[in-house]
Design a protein around this nucleic acid. Sequence first.
DNA 1: ATCGCCTCCTGCGCGC
DNA 2: TGCGCGCAGGAGGCGA
Length: 271
Amino acid sequence: MPELPEVETTRRGIEPYLLDQSIKQVTVHQWQLRWAIPKQIKLLKDQQIHAVDRRGKYILIKTAIGQAIVHLGMSGSLRICTDKKQPKRKHDHVEMLLSNGALMRLHDPRRFGCLLWQAIDEPEHSLLSNLGPEPLLDDFDAGHLINATRKRKVPIKNLIMNSQIVVGVGNIYASEALFMARVRPGRAAGRVKHKECEALVASIKTILQRSIEQGGTTLRDFVNSDGEPGYFKQSLFVYGKAGEPCQQCGTTIKQLVLGQRSTFYCPSCQS
DNA sequence: ATCGCCTCCTGCGCGC
DNA sequence: TGCGCGCAGGAGGCGA
């Protein structure tokens, strides 16, 4: 489900409830997510939260003795519950009770997400150590993308969704950014010109930023930490619009599969 | 090194 | 109304 804007929306939503609080209780109802939750997650009990950060699509809950690493997978969400009587729902796998009385619940029907632990004295987790730059920071620039695309034969869409190249670009925003940059998603990455790489970097930044401002994209079930949907869906140009006229030129939007993922583009606007 | 395919899991919408 | 099917916002891991 969540791409970078949805994860950032979630992070911003939970941060005020978590920051400087201590964790009074960690309850795990379902240990088996994508990977089993390590038993050490219980070390969070009585720890104070120093920061709630994000790296790519990972949310990092930091304490003096280590950090919890949360990934929401396809269907995960973190919700804050301030009403104690709010019942636990099916697929609420983990609950963390905070010193301010708030309860944070990790909900994930498909269980593609994860909750991992990295002690302060351990090397950076391998899931984090091989990640590319943050798309909204300055080290993700045209030079970086040009360098990453040379001699690569993978479709450009697959390449921008590769977290070793740049983090946070998922299936929705990859199609949208390619539309904005007027580049067809199936082009071999190495055939994308320098100018087009520049446009693509700018598009990725613009689209992710705008989506964050709208609270992310809710297609089916994304909700923020308050349980509210995001509003960027109304700003989508191509994703999920196969058969509809392009908003720019009227040509019918096409759909194909790349890297096992549905992909959308305008055959007239994008070349 | 790079690429493409498979996999994990539940839920929902669609066509019959 | 019910059932089976295909598809879904991720991404590591594998074999070629």
